[in-house]
Nucleic acid binder design. Sequence first.
DNA 1: GGATACTAGATCGTATCCAATTTGCGCCAG
DNA 2: CTGGCGCAAATTGGATACGATCTAGTATCC
Lengths: 230, 230
Amino acid sequence: MAEHGKSTTTDAVYDLLCRAIIEQSLKPGMRLPEDMVGEQFGVSRTIVRHALVRLETEGLVVSKRNRGAFVAEPTLEEARQIFEVRRCLETEVTRLLVERMPRSGFDALEAHVRREHGTKGKDGPVSIRLAGEFHILMAELSGNAVLAKYVTQVVRRCSLIMAMFANSHSADCAVDEHSQIIAAIRAKDTDRAVRLMEHHLGAVADRANFDGTPDTVESILARYGRELAQ
Amino acid sequence: MAEHGKSTTTDAVYDLLCRAIIEQSLKPGMRLPEDMVGEQFGVSRTIVRHALVRLETEGLVVSKRNRGAFVAEPTLEEARQIFEVRRCLETEVTRLLVERMPRSGFDALEAHVRREHGTKGKDGPVSIRLAGEFHILMAELSGNAVLAKYVTQVVRRCSLIMAMFANSHSADCAVDEHSQIIAAIRAKDTDRAVRLMEHHLGAVADRANFDGTPDTVESILARYGRELAQ
DNA sequence: GGATACTAGATCGTATCCAATTTGCGCCAG
DNA sequence: CTGGCGCAAATTGGATACGATCTAGTATCC
């Protein structure tokens, strides 16, 4: 977040942890002891704490007083709230893009969709991350940096949620929906684009089996099992 | 942000700095040397840096590499973007409140409006803060904590912007608009409530003389003057 | 007068220390 | 064998000192 200056050490640690969490290398609920993290990355505890503070303000980790930091475990209620905000923000992004898509915007979006197709059927975490980055790219093209930052945060938390709740046949089918959204924006059809985006996000949320299915016993036990296995 | 634990020292420093910035005791562009801040509050630089990291991620301060932290000076373009996001988020809050305003919600809102009336014509910074807290209260009543957090951040940055750009007859006239919004929500008139909210935010933005007037020479000089006077 | 080199000041990052609190274990009583 | 009590270990929260690094402003030289 340092304005123009090169990436500071804190930023590097933050980025690494961020990616590790989103790709589910660090699983939800897992502890992040400052000593261990600092030792692994070869930095002091101070830096790790700074990175953890940032991750906490963005909702990817939660820290319990005098107990340390943990990878966030969003509850279903939190997940619902996050998706609500995400729908709100991304429909705005869609509206803005219909109005003012920058010149090379469509090229960038279609290039990304091609990359998504490349990982079709491959391992889940990476395709979840790529799917999220499509939405982040859209937000950045909107020209509103503040909006893009919030979309980035929300999409990342959604990636974490998807990693927790998603069924095996995860987010692949969404790639076609991405293409449709691009087409609607290109056609300057605001209503259709927003409707597609809402449907897309609704589908993503459904795929994470929200409404209806509350926590099953095995999912809870699986989570506790992971924590134990740590 | 610590979940249930008591407020840690970092939180206290963060809150103090936050209020000081919003009430414009710390003026935009002012330097925040870690030594000085820590000395004034009686805490070590470690704590101050944590608080500054949080304030930076929320956009209230910017830190330049090896130069330290400064109170943010939003440009007009940033201000425009922030207001765009704010309108998006707060119309969503309004829609949600029409659907699901909690029981004691109207009492809380009207009590706040009365407090705003109490400071009518008094000093600007405090009434700017109160006006902002009305919107934050609305967001909290929406029942979506994530949405409320983002609204809080955006409103705070708007308070900073208002403090920078607002003319002398600042935000007092907005109190009546607050009452009208409450009435529309109570009547479950979504369209009217959203329209009022958009008009209200538009009026707030106008009051900060956005569109049309770019930076005047005197405002720029005033800012540099403040920085020099530091 | 303008460009370069140098010094002063601050931050960034590290290492180390102490205090507070939580956890987990053992011990003991019933 | 079960339940509660208390103590010790581990970890975070926080403070301080020190070196490295970068910026800014000054001084110098052409």
